[in-house]
Every structure is written in C-alpha cells, then in structure tokens.
Write a protein that binds this DNA or RNA. Structure first.
Lengths: 215, 215
DNA sequence: GTCTATAAATAGATAGAC
DNA sequence: GTCTATCTATTTATAGAC
C-alpha cells in the first residue's frame, strides 16, 4: 500500500464513493465516467489515472460492496440457539443491512438477478451463495432437530425467506405508497411478522387436510 | 389503424420484437438503436422512421408488455372458491406467465424495482398495483371468512407471496445451480410447496407459544 | 418504407503540461 | 495527482434519394 500524500478522503476515495453511488443507482450502462468525475469533483482524466478502465472502476466498487456484505453476513452467525429467534434476527439484520447500504445492495442484487454483461457476476455470486448456504443450514438444523416438517425442502424455505427480504428492499419505494402497507420502514416489525408466517408454516404438522403428502 | 402493405410480421413489428428482446435483457441504457436495427434486420434510420425516439420505442415496448401482463392477470381471476386452491393456482399461473414472457417480465420488474430514470415507471406501476391489489383482496376474503389469523396483515401476506414468485423468477439462473434446488423449472411444484407454507403459516391459530400477540 | 450519408453530441480512453 | 486538450468510436437523430 503506497501511502497517500496526506488526506484520507481525497482523490481515489472520493471517486470510489461517487462511483458506488452512481453505479448503484443506475447500473453500469447508465453511468458515464464524466458523471462520476463530476460528482467526485474532479476530471475524467483523473478517473482514468486512478483506474485503468470503466470496468476496472466498476469491479473495484463491486469488490468493496461484496466485502461489506460478506463481513456483515459472517458477523450475523452467532445469535442464540432458539430457531425462531435466530430466524427473526437473521431476517431483521438482513433487511437492515440492505437499508443502510442501498447502493451496495443494489449493485450486488443487480449482478445476481440480471443477466448482466459478465461483470462482477462472480463476486456477487459468492456473496449470494454464502448467504443462501447459511440460511439453508439454519433450516436444515431446525428440520434435523425435528422442529420442522420434512415435506418442504430446506432450500425452498431458504428461497422463501430471502425472497421476502430482497423483494421488500427492492420494491420499498413502490410498496410504501400502497394502501395498508405500513411495514416497509420497520425491519423489526416485518421480520417478526414474516418470520411468524414462515415458522408456523414450516412447523411439523403432517397430513394437512385433503391433499396427499406429495413431495 | 393504417393497414400495413401486406406482410403481418414486417418492419414495425419486427423492430418491436427485437426491441422487446434487447430492452428486456439489458435495459434501456444497455441497448443501442444500432443493435435493435441489426437484430430486426433493418437500418437505424428505419427504426427512427417508425418511432420518434429511443424513448418512444421503449415506451411502446413497455405498453405492449404491460398489456400482456394486465390481460393475463385479469383472466386469472375466476378459479373456484377454495382459498387454498385459488392461492396455489394464482402462484403457479403467475410464475408460468413470467417464465413464458421473460423479457416482458424483466422490463416491468426493472421499472418497478429500480429507481430508473422516470421511464415507463407509471405503466409498470399500474400492472404492479393491480396484481398486488388482487392478491391482497384474496387474503382479505380468506381472513374475513375466518380462515386466516388476524394478527398478520393481508398486505404483508400479499408481499410474501409476490416476493416468492418474483424472486424465484429473477434469480432462476443462479438458483438453478445451487445444491438442493430442484424446483426452479417446475412452477407447479414450487407453487404447491410455497403455498403450503404460506397457507399453514396463515391459518387461524392464535397464541402460538411463548411470544405475545403483538401486531 | 427503406435505404445511405451525415450531423451533432457524447462515450471511453490517451498525451502531455504542470 | 490533477489538469486541458485531443483522439476515436459510438451514440441519438435527421436529410434526402429511391
């Protein structure tokens, strides 16, 4: 690390911050180097001095974003041993993490959810896989402990949980204005209610009513 | 309607089809008129002959996409009066609709889920609202009939259902390669399993175990 | 309706002064 | 490290022939 001249938030860092904002809002194709330079308060040429290309800058932004999310996911592991409480906590932390880092969350989700032109797909995929694997493990533990039904695969339960969080985050600006929707800006409340539905729905209770126990 | 010279799929229609594909895959900013013309087998100038601007073409594509989805959502209304069956059917039809029209689905979802530069936001918003309202109504009917618990708001249940469908569609290409995930390409199976969890979770069953009935 | 040619602006990226 | 000036390719969009 060649130490920078003296100022902490100078040059390179400001460009990275501006790029994170803009790439997060509009995506790779929707942002020009001129726009990034303008927001960072510098010139186009200076952007190209600090980064070899637009793709290089984008990848650097992705790397930083993934690091933030990976670290947060790792830290969220230790939270008691009550399954219900762990699920609730995990959901709430997940939503709060995205709410606090909307641009970074957008970046990662875009890479995972859109076909995207081969950019940071691999990096974002790792974050996604890690998160997914952890949630699956949680549900499998619960099922192995006999707490959950065995006619619903753990990966499917994991998809449902992550889906709720991701969708709430992605559509928050639209949902907020819909009638009866008063839970968008209260992660704790949403996590509590959604987790309740998932937990009750997953509890061991064979032979529901009229349909066979088809897998 | 000034009838076209003689061929049904000629000129304008081919351009619209090409634009739907490309805008759906890469979004507004990621597609150039040259690319659309190339795929439609015509020239740039001809694209501008049929449409006043790139935004015009994009809006036309959005309009058509929304029409397809609005019609399908309307048609899905009448399906028996068994709540469980209706929810299952609605989920399955929704997933199948997106699977069959991936580009149109992507277009609409992108407009709703990304901040996006003011483009077809309004159009897509209508489709989204309509779908959301219908699902909320379904859950409210069930709750009014006394079938569902009343400590989980209907809009939240609706968000959970739609979230599962949207997320399954959006991340299908990533999920497909994850261990234990064998439900991505079987809408019937996914709808059956996910609906089971939601239904069981929403069934009337007050005072779960240890936590109060907080709303 | 479709084309070639072109205009005008902007994109990503480089050269070289300071 | 930062800048102005510039290069080249590509962008949206238009003009006008056929």
């Amino acid at each position: 690390m060649p130490e920078p001249s003296r100022n902490a938030t100078s040059g390179r860092d400001e460009i990275l911050a501006a790029a994170t904002d803009l790439f997060g809002e509009t995506g790779f194709d929707g942002v020009s180097i001129s726009a990034i330079a303008r927001r960072a308060g510098t010139s186009k040429a200076n952007v190209f001095h600090h980064f070899n290309s637009k793709e290089d800058l984008y990848m650097e932004v992705m790397r930083a974003a993934c690091k933030v999310f990976n670290r947060a996911v790792k830290d969220a592991g230790d939270a008691g041993d009550d399954f219900d409480e762990r699920l609730r906590t995990l959901m709430r932390q997940d939503i709060e993490l995205m709410s606090v880092n909307p641009d970074r969350a957008h970046l990662i989700l875009r890479e995972v959810l859109e076909s995207g032109p081969s950019h940071g797909r691999a990096l974002a995929g790792e974050v996604f896989d890690e998160q997914f694997t952890e949630v699956v493990a949680l549900f499998e533990q619960a099922r192995d402990a006999g707490a959950f039904r065995d006619d619903v695969p753990a990966p499917l339960a994991a998809v449902m949980m992550i889906a709720c969080n991701v969708f709430l985050f992605q559509s928050r600006n639209v949902l907020r204005h819909l009638p009866g929707v008063d839970f968008v800006d209260d992660p704790g409340r949403f996590a509590r209610l959604a987790a309740r539905v998932l937990l009750e729905g997953l509890h061991h209770r064979p032979e529901p009513a009229g349909q066979g126990t088809e897998t």
